[in-house]
Simulated scan of single mutants.
Amino acid sequence: MDDDITRKIAAAGHDAAQRDEAMRLVYGDLLRIARAELGRHRRGETLNTRALVNEAYLKLFDRDGADFENRKHFFATAARAMRQVAIDYARARLAERRGAGAEHVPLDALEGNPLPVDAQAEQLVGIDAALEKLAGLDTRLVTVVELRFFAGLEVKDIAALLGVSEPTVKRDTRVAKAFLQKELGEA
């Protein structure tokens, strides 16, 4: 099944029918990722799971056809698209409430605990800026963070997607968290 999905995603490109078929095959996975993402952002949000998946779909296929090399590339891109949608939403919320203070939330709050978008939009925007800086140093670290914290994937799933060992994913997570904590502490 994974090979079938990979072929359909890779072939989707410019063909709307093939994109729709690829989307049908991965829609359940994207909903699971969206639920994990939104589970971190509860408490009065207006962005729901299907809206997040639909917005991510538009980001994934808004170019002149999307070229995904394989399943890993597709899901990493989907996780990044969902992160961008959540960050865009947080920025919009900040624009609506300029000047309102928000409490400091440590990076560890992302793991396993809800992080409400409305209440902590500033922290999400700060994390996004730190991730952009980290991307300039090591893109795999950012991919691990996106897949683990934004997409809610388990270490073993990330290892399989990236073709690395579970200890490598755990090590990458520790390195990325240390970098982000340093960046967020200086901000």
Rank of each mutant, 00 (worst) to 15 (best):
T46R: 12
A135W: 05
F75S: 00
T46W: 06
H14N: 11
V164G: 05
A159I: 07
N48M: 07
D108C: 09
D128P: 00
V53R: 02
V85G: 01
A119Y: 06
L141R: 10
L107A: 13
D88K: 01
R7F: 10
D108T: 08
I5T: 13
A17L: 15
L38Y: 04
N48S: 04
A135G: 01
V145L: 07
E45N: 05
H73W: 02
L60N: 02
L38N: 02
D2P: 06
T77P: 00
H14Y: 12
F150L: 11
R42W: 13
G28Y: 05
A81V: 01
R19A: 10
E132V: 03
P106G: 12
V144G: 01
V145F: 15
K72D: 13
N113F: 13
D4W: 04
R171L: 15
A86P: 00
K182P: 02
L58A: 10
G126T: 06
D62T: 03
G163Q: 13
N54Q: 09
G99L: 11
D20N: 15
M82P: 00
K72R: 15
M23W: 14
P114R: 06
T173D: 05
I158F: 13
V169P: 13
V142K: 03
Q181R: 14
D4C: 04
D4Q: 08
V26H: 03
V155K: 02
N48C: 04
A36W: 02
A119C: 13
A81F: 00
L107G: 09
K156I: 04
K133R: 15
F61E: 09
A121V: 06
A176G: 10
F74T: 08
E132N: 11
K8I: 10
A129W: 00
D157K: 13
A76K: 04
G112D: 05
A11H: 02
D3I: 06
R93Q: 14
L94T: 06
P167D: 11
E183Q: 08
L94Q: 14
L31G: 01
Q181P: 07
D2F: 14
D15K: 05
D4M: 15
A187E: 11
M1H: 09
L52G: 14
F179C: 07
V26S: 04
L47Y: 04
D88Q: 08
S165W: 08
A66Q: 03
E21V: 05
A121S: 15
A78G: 01
P167V: 08
M82E: 01
V145N: 03
M82F: 02
A100F: 09
A78K: 01
A129T: 11
E154Q: 14
A10N: 06
V142E: 07
P114L: 03
P114F: 08
E45H: 12
L31T: 04
V53G: 02
G185D: 03
K177L: 10
F149I: 02
K72Y: 02
I87C: 06
L184D: 05
D2L: 12
V164P: 15
A119F: 10
G163W: 06
N54G: 03
A178E: 07
G136A: 11
T6V: 11
I9G: 00
R148Y: 01
A119S: 04
A135E: 13
R71T: 09
S165H: 09
R19M: 09
R19I: 07
R50E: 13
A11Y: 03
D29L: 07
